[in-house]
Design a protein around this nucleic acid. Sequence first.
DNA 1: GAGCGATATATCGGTCCGATATATCGGTCC
DNA 2: GGACCGATATATCGGACCGATATATCGCTC
Lengths: 189, 189
Amino acid sequence: MLELGVLGLLKEKPMHGYELKQRLAEQLGPFGRFSYGSLYPTLKRLAKDGAVETDLPKTEASRRKNVYRITPAGESLFDALLEESGPSVTEERNAFMLRLAFFRYMKPETRTRLMESRRGYLQGRLQKMAASLKNVKEKMDAYSVELMRYGVNEAEHDIRWLDDMLETERRNGNGTNSNAAAPTPEGAR
Amino acid sequence: MLELGVLGLLKEKPMHGYELKQRLAEQLGPFGRFSYGSLYPTLKRLAKDGAVETDLPKTEASRRKNVYRITPAGESLFDALLEESGPSVTEERNAFMLRLAFFRYMKPETRTRLMESRRGYLQGRLQKMAASLKNVKEKMDAYSVELMRYGVNEAEHDIRWLDDMLETERRNGNGTNSNAAAPTPEGAR
DNA sequence: GAGCGATATATCGGTCCGATATATCGGTCC
DNA sequence: GGACCGATATATCGGACCGATATATCGCTC
């Protein structure tokens, strides 16, 4: 998860850990809550594996700013992480949302497949939760009922939301097309 | 987190690990996704600490059903975990939602304080996200914009939702009152 | 009584969090 | 100039939790 986020941000420009943390928080909001306790070790691991590199070499980094940039190997790793989406990406909102932040780098058919598979998952969950809510409503306290209602509402909302995005995708010409839907990749007006 | 969930469920009736996992999933839906890899160790730890106990003693549990029940020490631990709510309970939805499942066991003033403190947190986050969205909307790709929009909408929705619950709380006579809002604790019709 | 899917427990490696410690930078106040 | 301080920046440790894997048992059908 964090690896993907770090590499995705480093694709835009080289950064140091502190800045990465800030950008993750501000771009992903509640979905990118990572701690330094995982961020810095992750950067070290990525460096060791050759996915990112830094100017000042291993000697005596002390505690000065340490700017990392992504390597070609890192780009490949990013692509691999982005394309292979296990069940957790479909079933966990945070994982899905992190992917969404990098949808522009994803092959349109992967994008569509992912949205549809999450939609399917949510549909199934909605089914179960709605049934369960109906069954046990009478024997449960009001707070627990409220909790389940929240879950049902969210599932319904997210399904509509995904449908809108899928519709937009189609309108922009993605049965299995190339990159659309990004207004101007670098037109940083 | 898991400790609280386990103890909370065991308050209703003794259960074994497998059943606990099922009930967590069905009662908490997407907010109670715990794995066996943490559940079983947690049960062992709680047993070692005297918070739960089981019939068949330590000798040769092999792999037969292992029913745990909560002890008085466990009840105290539950109360302590429920009342002390650090920043993560305010800032992380899952942690807050898990608490919600046990709101009926909470002192009304703790309940109110918790809802208000989450409301405050969401309000602050909404502020930041809305500003950030306005600022960077033009330079970002459509998917990232959609991600931020989702975050803003959710915050707004959750604030309204909390306001409704706080209003209900007040209507049911909780400035600082005792237990209301639970229709019939055991009227398992 | 063999076969099998659901029930049930255990464990390992690895990711991530939360707390804590430490260093550096850029002011500003005297 | 140097003492102080808040923001910037990195590092590390213990523990919670996940995901994968292994294993045992139960109840059913054939």
